[in-house]
Simulated scan of single mutants.
Amino acid sequence: MRALAKKCRICNHQLSLHQGADASTPQPAVSLTQRASSLIASASAPPAPAAPPVASGPPAGFYPDPQGIAPYRWWNGQDWTEHTTTTPPQ
């Protein structure tokens, strides 16, 4: 009788596959190992929430336009926007 040796794709456990019903050694049922169970659990876990953005400058408001297109441009607290004005901030 010819035996085929394979490894489990999940836990790399050695498996033996015997051809024919009259195999000389009984084969135990293969169950998931604790390692494989933890891999499955971690794969289905939701992703961690993203960290809130960190302020990278002065508070939101109109400031002198760094592009020089208009007298004042709106800074939203993180980025310059397309909003401009000719009226100085108060």
Rank of each mutant, 00 (worst) to 15 (best):
A41R: 10
A23S: 14
P26V: 05
T85Q: 10
A51T: 09
T33M: 00
E82Q: 12
T85K: 09
G20P: 00
T25F: 01
I10E: 05
W75G: 03
A55Q: 15
P71L: 12
T25R: 09
S38W: 09
W75M: 04
D65V: 06
A55E: 07
V30S: 03
T81S: 11
Q34P: 02
W80H: 04
N12R: 12
H83D: 14
T86W: 13
S37Q: 14
P58C: 04
I69Y: 05
D79R: 13
T25M: 08
Q34V: 06
P88A: 15
Q27E: 11
R9F: 06
P58S: 15
T85E: 07
K6Q: 12
P28V: 00
P66W: 01
L4W: 13
T84E: 08
I40R: 07
L17C: 10
T87D: 11
Q14C: 04
P46M: 07
A36N: 01
T86P: 02
Q19A: 15
I40T: 06
P66Q: 03
C8R: 08
A36E: 04
S38E: 14
S38K: 11
P64A: 12
A21L: 12
I10G: 04
M1H: 11
G57Y: 07
Q90R: 12
S56A: 05
S38P: 02
C11K: 00
A55I: 11
S56I: 10
P71K: 10
V30D: 08
W74C: 01
S24L: 08
A36M: 00
V30E: 07
T86K: 10
A48P: 01
L17E: 15
Y63A: 02
A48G: 04
R73H: 09
T87A: 08
W80Q: 03
L39Y: 04
P66F: 00
S44V: 12
A51N: 10
G20L: 09
S16Y: 14
Q78I: 02
I10K: 05
Y63V: 00
L17M: 08
Q67A: 15
P64K: 15
Y63T: 01
P53C: 07
P53E: 03
T84L: 00
P53I: 08
E82D: 15
A29H: 09
A41H: 08
P47N: 02
T85L: 08
S37L: 13
P88E: 06
D79P: 03
D79W: 03
N76Y: 04
A45V: 07
P58I: 13
P64I: 07
Y63N: 00
